[in-house]
Design a binder for these strands. Structure first.
Lengths: 132, 132
DNA sequence: TCTTGACCTTCCAGTAGATGGAGGCTGCAA
DNA sequence: TTGCAGCCTCCATCTACTGGAAGGTCAAGA
């Protein structure tokens, strides 16, 4: 398979696939013409990477996960630990974003949103408290 | 004030303050010795920036917000629109992260997490469905 | 007066994870 | 043969900083 085919099948842009090769996540063979030549295993790996990335794992996590996937003597505890740590980070990010959202929503709700300059949003940003 | 003082008072690292000058968000004067010399208005702006950044606004949004803040003939509608758009993006990110969290949590809950290699997490990443 | 140490300066490089584009080859169909 | 899609490499760019090197400045203490 050429890169265009695996791009379609894996759902990853060709650019990204080349990048993944650059950083050593995959090692496709080359045809005589210099084109990358992807085997089914490569496609499989790319799909794995696409799913792991879609779950928010970092590239380095993906590297580790792929290593574990290919290691028949792995312990599922190692995978679970990695996933749980990531889960914690996701939860933390959600918490941060919810705090932002709540603060911002409060400011937005106080704002008339008309053609006058008075604006509790700017006021809140300037003073740290929209009510003052 | 020197940069160290405004760093403490604004809560922003000195490096970040220099960076904000680099990209034109602030324009502190210089003392004869070449040191940056911050007026109260500069500190005020930095605190504004710190709060806007803490709410997740991009640097470009911050630039716009500061422009609106300094423009006495602004319409609060413009500020509100910007904030609402940002609010939408935050909500979207939260949604994405929640989807990730839910999928990942499901996988994690299926995983024994022991010393055996069988692992629904890896299986889910490989196949797109942990149950298969 | 000298030294020490904290503070300040600029400049360069690096981070994550791609993405965009230039310039140039390859392959296939009309 | 020509044209165009697809592939190649290499370099630059994005966000928002952050780290570090090399060196100037200032104030306090011996």
């Amino acid at each position: 398979m050429n890169i265009g085919d695996v791009a379609v099948r894996s759902g990853l842009p060709a650019k990204t696939i080349r990048y993944y090769e650059d950083i050593g996540l995959i090692r496709p063979h080359r045809s005589a013409n210099g084109y990358r030549c992807f085997a089914d295993t490569d496609l499989h790996k790319l799909a794995f990477l696409a799913r792991a990335r879609a779950l928010g794992f970092t590239i380095e996590d993906c590297r580790t996960l792929m290593g574990l996937y290919e290691d028949d003597s792995r312990a599922s505890a190692d995978v679970k630990a990695l996933a749980q740590e990531h889960l914690g980070k996701i939860a933390e990010k959600i918490g941060d974003l919810e705090a932002m959202r709540d603060t911002l929503r409060e400011l937005v709700e106080c704002c008339a949103g008309d053609d006058r300059p008075e604006c509790p949003i700017l006021h809140g940003l300037a003073c740290g408290d929209p009510k003052v």
